[in-house]
Amino acid sequence: MSVWTEFLRDKKFEIKDDYGIFLHEFKTPMFFSTEKDLMTYLGDSELKEVLFIKFKEDDNFKLFGSEKRHQDIINSTQKKKNIKSILWAIVVLVGILAYQKYFKNNEDPRDFKLWILLASIVPIINFGFEYFSYKKNNSENFDGFINNSIFVFWLNKSYKANLAYILPVILSICFGFKEILELGKSTKYNLINDWALLKSQVFLGEYYRIVSNLFVHSNMLHISAVAGALLFLSKLFLRFYNIYFLIFIFLITGIVGSFTSMIFHPDDISYGASSSVLGILGFLISFILKFSNIIPKNFINEMLTSSILFIVFLGIVGFNYIDNTANLGGFVAGLLLGATLDNRNSVEAKIKESFLKIKI
């Protein structure tokens, strides 16, 4: 019997109404007087928060998505989310047009296409993942779904989550500084010229560029994609390791990416922390595969699938825009670091200890 099943069995509460839901992350069950009230709440809430649902004729809570009638709720909510995604894409489109007109008249038109992709297609793909995860819920994968929910809950309880903002904030400050310098056209400083990975300058002795290029980003699209991905991965990374090790992986994989770019593209200019982001991603992929006996299979599958899509998307869309050689070098370096690091006992102990501290 899983932890969740025991919790549901032992939880003492009085069902005063005919309809109800049980929420994710150990929240208090909610009950409604009418089915309309229940459906209204479900339509306005995030379905990923819902674990179980109860209708009038049901004696017990049923795993949400496990019955045919639940699909009407899922389909309706999916449709609303897609409409919101389209509206959000329109808002982003208007913002980009204003940004290009008043601040960046010479912006590369490829940035415009990438913004649209990120603003509309990516959210729809995320909704699709959520949709199909509920479509496949049944009694056979009940334990996997519940264990995954507990694991995600545990990840989100990290007291070090705020530390995940350190690197994205530093990168954003550097970008803001670059933008301020560019607004003052008379300035003699240019961060791309001064900090980027100009290979010819490195060969002349400016070795600092091997690291400094990680803190230079060309535009809002570049910094938004890098900082957003870095924030997400850092939160996961810091659940198992400290901030110092995160910075170490960030720098080491970024440096490896710089060297890879210098070897295969000695005449090109490179900058940005995407090689470090992919290095951290590679490290985490090795990590979750190594600890597959602890980490739920659902989480591993979702992580691997989203990672593959992210890498393919980055490689195809940014083939002529991003230094994929540097990214590949950083990713491989992260994979190797994650595979060679032997800390199984400490991580297992940390997971088990922290689970005991979770208060329901």
Rank of each mutant, 00 (worst) to 15 (best):
T187D: 00
A196C: 03
V202K: 05
Q201P: 09
S186D: 10
K188T: 14
Q201T: 14
V202E: 01
K188V: 07
W195M: 13
L198A: 06
L198C: 01
E206H: 15
N213G: 13
Y189E: 03
L197A: 12
T187C: 00
L197Y: 05
K188G: 04
L191A: 06
L191G: 00
K188S: 12
K188D: 09
S186K: 10
L214Q: 07
A196E: 02
V211R: 01
N190Q: 04
L197H: 08
R209K: 15
E206F: 14
K188Y: 11
N193H: 12
W195I: 03
S186W: 13
S212H: 01
S200T: 12
T187Q: 05
S200C: 04
L197W: 04
K199I: 12
L198F: 15
Y208V: 08
E206T: 13
F203W: 09
T187V: 04
L214F: 03
F203E: 09
S186V: 02
N190D: 15
S212C: 07
N213C: 12
Y189H: 12
N193K: 13
A196Q: 05
Y207D: 00
L197S: 10
Q201D: 15
Y208R: 07
K185D: 08
N190K: 09
G184T: 05
N213I: 05
N193T: 06
L204Q: 15
G184P: 00
K185H: 14
G205A: 12
E206L: 14
V211S: 04
G205C: 11
V211D: 03
N190R: 09
Q201C: 05
K188N: 13
S200H: 14
Y207Q: 03
E206I: 09
K199R: 07
Y208E: 13
G184M: 07
N193R: 11
A196L: 04
L191K: 03
N190Y: 05
N193I: 02
N190S: 06
G184I: 10
R209I: 07
F203L: 11
Y208M: 11
V202F: 10
I210Q: 03
N193E: 11
S186R: 07
L191R: 02
F203N: 05
S212K: 02
Y208T: 08
N193M: 02
L197R: 09
Q201H: 14
L198R: 11
G184N: 11
N193V: 01
V211M: 06
E206M: 13
N190E: 06
S186Y: 10
N190T: 01
N193P: 00
T187G: 00
